[in-house]
């Protein structure tokens, strides 16, 4: 059951293509998709809804700017719509509200935190900062779910704590119990903004079906350029075979964990690879086959594998032998 948050006024910049929905129902089959809001659009937040089960939000926007020419199926300026906001994959960037010239702004309204502030506070675990004019935490936080009554406050604090824990487990380095806990250089790579950017970009732009012809290495290179994991000027640009990724990435400063004595015996199958590692396979049947390459999206068997398409787990993968688990330690 979603919890209705209060009206908020704040700007929002849209970083990726999003679906606009007529209602705050984001379930499959809701049939309320209205249009696509293209990346680069801007809007104003009108309303937010928090979904305690998932820790995500529904955000109602008024579109104020749409880049490019108006097209059928795209949002128009002035449209009001609901978008889904996941703190894990933040495709919305919340900005401070811009006040119209000469317009007096209600000081209480000016002090309201935005969804971005809420998420940031939860992520950092710092809690909400008290505003100057507010005497209590609840006073300074009218958009979030803090209420002046202590029970409601406690309940919401628990919710926020849950989100905080979820965010910590999903975004923090190697999870407890993982074999990578004792390897800070691996965790540093996996936690780097470049890896996060690469995975986020790949997940947004992956294909739903494999192309004709399949081009896994082409797409992995594209994701890596976009996430700034490799230098676009490098030799990797011209390499046609996925199995050559080991050599190509070594030239870019990567190491193959399967050859490195420090990690010997730690990686027996793709599930053992750390988050963000580039996995390289060769074909066991056909020596002329170009092989396969993909990026691990999370730790352990939580993670899927993204290249041209996304695989939820390491099965099935037939006639493929893992020959490289590539990371860059100097990130």
């Amino acid at each position: 059951m979603p919890v209705q948050a209060q009206e908020s006024v704040g700007g929002v910049a849209i970083k990726g293509n999003l679906f606009g929905h007529s209602t705050a129902d984001f379930q499959k089959g809701a049939g309320n998709t209205e249009f696509v809001i293209p990346a680069g659009s801007e809007g104003v937040v009108l309303e937010t809804v928090f979904f305690p089960n998932t820790g995500n939000y529904g955000v109602r926007l008024r579109i104020t700017k749409v880049p490019g020419k108006p097209r059928r199926g795209l949002a128009k300026k002035g449209d009001e719509t609901w978008v889904y906001y996941s703190p894990k994959e933040p495709w919305l960037h919340f900005t401070k509200p811009k006040n119209a010239k000469g317009k007096k702004v209600d000081p209480e309204e000016e002090n309201r935190p935005e969804v971005g502030d809420i998420v940031r506070a939860v992520k950092e675990g710092t809690g909400f900062k008290k505003k100057k004019n507010s005497s209590t935490e609840a006073d300074g936080c009218s958009t979030c779910e803090f209420r002046s009554t202590s029970s409601a406050q406690d309940g919401n604090l628990k919710d926020l704590k849950k989100i905080q824990d979820k965010i910590k487990t999903s975004s923090q380095s190697a999870p407890a119990g993982s074999q990578w806990v004792n390897y800070p250089e691996v965790a540093k790579y996996s936690d780097s903004s470049e890896v996060k950017k690469t995975i986020s970009y790949a997940m947004r732009n992956k294909r739903s079906h494999i192309g004709d012809p399949p081009r896994c290495y082409h797409y992995v290179k594209r994701w890596m350029y976009r996430g700034e994991l490799v230098d676009p000027e490098g030799k990797i640009v011209n390499s046609p075979n996925a199995k050559n990724a080991v050599r190509d990435l070594k030239e870019q400063g990567y190491i193959n964990m399967m050859e490195d004595p420090r990690y010997k015996g730690l990686i027996k199958n793709p599930d053992d690879a750390p988050k963000g590692a580039v996995l390289v396979y060769r074909n066991t049947r056909n020596a002329h086959h170009p092989g396969h390459v993909e990026i691990k999206t999370d730790w352990g068997d939580n993670g899927g594998y993204v290249a041209e398409v996304y695989r939820k787990n390491n099965q099935p993968l037939i006639n493929r032998e893992l020959i490289g688990v590539m990371i860059e330690e100097s990130l």
Binding site: I210, G211, D212, P213, P214, R215, C216, Y217, H218, K221, N238, S239, P240, N241, A242, N244, N286, H288, H289, P290, H292
Partner: peptide
């Protein structure tokens, strides 16, 4: 058919 032909193309021209 598309997938088989795609696999043959991939074998000859690579996937990069």
């Amino acid at each position: 058919r598309e997938r088989i032909e795609g696999a043959i193309y991939e074998e000859i021209h690579g996937n990069g």
